[in-house]
Design a protein around this nucleic acid. Structure first.
Lengths: 123, 123
DNA sequence: CTGTATCCAGAGGGATACTG
DNA sequence: CAGTATCCCTCTGGATACAG
């Protein structure tokens, strides 16, 4: 974490094959971080998630949840009750993932005046 | 950076207006981080950058450089010589930006086995 | 409640050719 | 050298309707 070190991906074709790249793209997609942030509070059911995140379509909710599950960032637990209930929750990996993501969010907040996109955004 | 704290964006419509969101999208786009990483070494000229990043088109190079410049992450310096020479370099803001980005990259590297996308990626 | 399937519009991004 | 302008194709993501 010092000043220099790490020559970073750079000059890439592996760009595609690099695990860092896929992680960055995941962070950049529209809903992943929002969903992970919601799940950071507690486990949620499907519709509950749908209602909690304004503007998120059921289609993208499904797709994003599947992607996050494949990455091992969240877990999906089916409770075969009537009606059926599914719980989505962060895994340990997901929790650890949120740390660097939050660092990035904090950076953005700390430098929002420098970034000139100074629209007010609470908390 | 403790365990809890920070309730994060969550349940959003401001999602769009939040500075953190735009930063995450920037991180997620295809070339920004690669270009910033290259510039972390030293200043580069336009064609020099083009040649250094395999697979990057001149069109996207221009667009990405403009975007990064507007964000204040890089500087563009025109030297009116013959032939003309332009230098792109990281700003202090750009350098500070790379810190959390690298943290994310290091996380990805550290957990690449957990992420199951275990294609070999050196450095 | 928890999804899947279809359709469709818009953004992202590559190839190529041209300009100061 | 340092770009701009077009064309075009793919991927993302929203709307809507249907299913277990």
């Amino acid at each position: 974490m010092s000043t220099a070190a790490i020559t970073v991906p750079v000059t890439v074709a592996d760009h595609e094959n690099c695990p860092a790249t896929s992680v960055l793209r995941r962070v950049g997609d529209k809903w992943s971080v929002v969903i992970l942030s919601v799940l950071a509070q507690r486990a949620y059911g499907f519709n509950e998630l749908d209602r909690s995140v304004e503007g998120l379509s059921r289609r993208m909710l499904t797709r994003t949840l599947r992607a996050l599950e494949e990455d091992g960032l969240i877990s999906r637990t089916l409770h075969p009750s009537v009606p059926p209930r599914v719980d989505y929750a962060l895994t340990d990996l997901g929790r650890s993932f949120l740390e660097p993501v939050r660092a990035l969010g904090l950076w953005a907040l700390a430098h929002r005046s420098d970034l000139e996109a100074t629209r007010t955004c609470d908390s």
